[in-house]
Write a protein that binds this DNA or RNA. Sequence first.
DNA 1: CCGGCAGACGCAATTTCTTCGCATTAGACT
DNA 2: AGTCTAATGCGAAGAAATTGCGTCTGCCGG
Lengths: 192, 192
Amino acid sequence: MSARATTRPGGRSARVQQSVHQAVRDLEAEVGRDALTVPLIAARAGVTPSTVYRRWGDLRELLSDVAVERLRPDAPPADHGSLRADLEAWTVQFAEEMSSTAGRTYIRDALLGDPGQGNAGRCSDYAAEQLKAIGVRAAGRGEAVPELETLLDVVVAPLMYRILFRPSELSQAYAGRLVAAALGRAGSPSDT
Amino acid sequence: MSARATTRPGGRSARVQQSVHQAVRDLEAEVGRDALTVPLIAARAGVTPSTVYRRWGDLRELLSDVAVERLRPDAPPADHGSLRADLEAWTVQFAEEMSSTAGRTYIRDALLGDPGQGNAGRCSDYAAEQLKAIGVRAAGRGEAVPELETLLDVVVAPLMYRILFRPSELSQAYAGRLVAAALGRAGSPSDT
DNA sequence: CCGGCAGACGCAATTTCTTCGCATTAGACT
DNA sequence: AGTCTAATGCGAAGAAATTGCGTCTGCCGG
């Protein structure tokens, strides 16, 4: 499932998916996430509930798809002139977005309704792409760049762990320390 | 919510909670987790569905409570004679348990139905307690012991990140590298 | 030891959600 | 243009969620 790239961009399936996703976003803002139901979303989207059940299986999977869309970065990471500055800026922004009430909800939704783990993997891929872009740019400047896996282990994973399991232990200073730790070491615990 | 320590151990509320939890565990083994419903659980537990809804709110919160119970370590970490050996053994066992199909399901359930983030925090506390016990024992031997926060950042967080977001990237060798990384550094990115 | 009190539970009706079969339609392909 | 596949709409039947009300359990003061 996880309806994606169905027929063509102009086809009916694509229109239905768009209007359903849009209905989820609209209703989430209007009535709150906890009040969302499949019949409610279907009515707003102008389709019948059975269509939603057939395409997405249940409400959780639909919310998971929408959440992943919202977690997709909308722009490449900003260029601040150095690897350290780029990493710090990206990390702080990432931490702020993900630790917000909305961000945590999206992460949890993305993780929850996810039979094949596809959506969760996509979340990680988004972060990896951004970090890779920062790394390529830094390499172009001649800077030494940590392994991508190292950054995921040392920066992203601790952030996400706190966001999910220890939301009170997260601060901007902590995010900064993670970046410092990542840049302070050349090798990597994960050189797979 | 999150019914806990209601009246007395012998009270009726406690009996209801126990029988409901037991019903969840039994039915999970018999019919599979995806087939669980509140009416089904209530019938097995010998209570009415409305009781379950009133005490736990919905199925997700009930499953969250049961999942946290299952994630609670049943014994202190084994003693292998040295900090490194204890850490490696604990980490490998932790990774195996948590990355199994059942373990991932419990983690996801614990995270999902968790309004106040109380259950997620408890999961982290369990790991922290085990690590602390290993640390205290090592300190008693005169070994230098990393900060607890460092272990959470360097060992637990990367493991959990892979379990949740990149399940295919997890191996026993990776768990070993994480321990090596944790013991190879004295300081900490998180000396809060 | 007895009676009152607060909270939890059982019961049952109502509302809402979920599932399914069947007919119809949109879009693709020749 | 004609046909073929797949997705959608519709409606009914079944299951689950929610709620009000009466009852009972277990606790506490008299």
